[in-house]
Design a protein around this nucleic acid. Structure first.
Length: 256
DNA sequence: ATGGTGGCTTAGCCA
C-alpha cells in the first residue's frame, strides 16, 4: 500500500501536475494540503476518472486538505479537536483499507512572536492530543502532511543560520519531537537515518538551484504501520517541473 | 542595493 503526502499549493493551479504525478506514481492514498479551494469548487471529476475516491475539507482561496484513495474512505473526522474557534481547513482523517490516515496542514506561523506563531504551537499541541488518542487503537496509522517544522539539523540546509527562524525554531521543533515521543515514527528518517533530503524549497529560484531546502513534510507512523514499512522517499523531480508546487510528494509503502 | 517567487481574495497578505 503506497501512501503519499503532498502540499500542492492550490489544487486548481496544480491540477495538470497532480494528474501526471498520480498516473506515474499511482499511490493508493494521497494526502493533499493547501488545496486552496471550497469543497464545491474542488476539481473532483478528473481525479475520480483516475479511479480515486475523494474526501475534502476546504475553504475559499487558502488552506484546505484532501484525501484521495483508490478504496472507500470511511470514518471521516473533518476537524482537529481542541479549539471550537478554529474554523481553518487544516485536518482531515479517515480509514482506507483498515489503515487510519490523516492529512494535516500545520499553520506556517508567519513570524516569531505573532498570534499566528502561537496558533501554530497550540495546533501542534492539539495534534499531539489527537495522535495520543489514535495510538490507543493500536492499528496502522499514518499522519501525513505539511508540518512546517524541520525536526533536526540534518533536515534543514543551514541549521546554524536558520536556528530560531520560522519552521526551525526550538519551540516548534520540541512540539514536533513531542509527537515522536508519543511513539510515532518519522517514516523517512526510519528508512533513511543519515540521508539529507528536502521536501520544500522557497519559490525564489536560487534556493532550489543551490538545493537549499527544508524537510518539513512528514509521514508519521504508528508502531503497527512501521512494522509494515518498506520504503519512503521524496519525488524531488517534481520541484523541477514546469509550474511546480514549492513542496514535493513524500511517499511510503506498507506491506499488506 | 531590502529585490528576488507564486497563488489568491486582484491588492496586499500569506507562504
Amino acid at each position: 500500500m503506497k501512501i503519499a503526502t503532498w502540499n500542492v499549493n492550490s489544487i486548481r493551479a496544480r491540477l495538470p501536475r497532480v494528474l501526471d504525478w498520480l498516473e506515474a506514481a499511482r499511490p493508493d492514498v494521497a494526502l493533499l494540503q493547501e488545496t486552496k479551494v471550497a469543497d464545491e469548487q474542488f476539481p473532483a471529476e478528473p481525479l475520480e476518472e483516475l479511479g480515486y475516491n475523494l474526501a475534502t475539507v476546504g475553504e475559499p482561496g487558502r488552506n484546505g486538505v484532501a484525501i484521495l484513495a483508490r478504496s472507500p474512505i470511511e470514518d471521516l473526522c473533518r476537524a482537529l479537536p481542541g479549539d471550537a474557534d478554529d474554523q481553518e481547513a487544516r485536518y482531515l482523517e479517515g480509514v482506507v483499507n483498515g489503515v487510519r490516515v490523516a492529512s494535516v496542514y500545520v499553520p506556517n506561523g508567519t513570524s516569531l512572536g505573532s498570534p499566528r506563531f502561537a496558533f501554530k504551537l497550540t495546533f501542534l499541541d492539539r495534534l499531539k492530543t489527537r495522535a495520543q488518542k489514535l495510538l490507543e487503537f493500536e492499528e496502522s496509522l499514518v499522519i501525513g502532511g505539511d508540518y512546517n517544522v524541520g525536526p533536526y539539523p540534518i533536515d534543514v540546509y543551514d541549521p546554524a543560520a536558520l536556528d530560531g527562524t520560522i519552521c526551525y525554531h526550538p519551540e516548534e521543533r520540541a512540539k514536533l519531537r513531542a509527537l515522536l515521543h508519543l511513539g510515532l515514527y518519522d517514516a523517512f528518517r526510519t528508512v533513511e537515518p543519515g540521508s539529507r533530503a528536502y521536501s520544500w524549497w522557497d519559490y525564489q529560484g536560487r534556493f532550489f538551484r543551490a538545493n537549499q531546502g527544508l524537510r518539513i513534510d512528514h509521514l508519521l507512523l504508528s508502531p503497527q504501520a512501521v512494522d509494515r514499512l518498506e520504503t519512503c522517499a521524496m519525488d524531488a523531480a517534481e520541484r523541477a517541473a514546469k509550474a511546480p508546487s514549492d513542496h514535493v510528494p513524500v511517499w511510503c509503502t506498507l506491506r499488506d
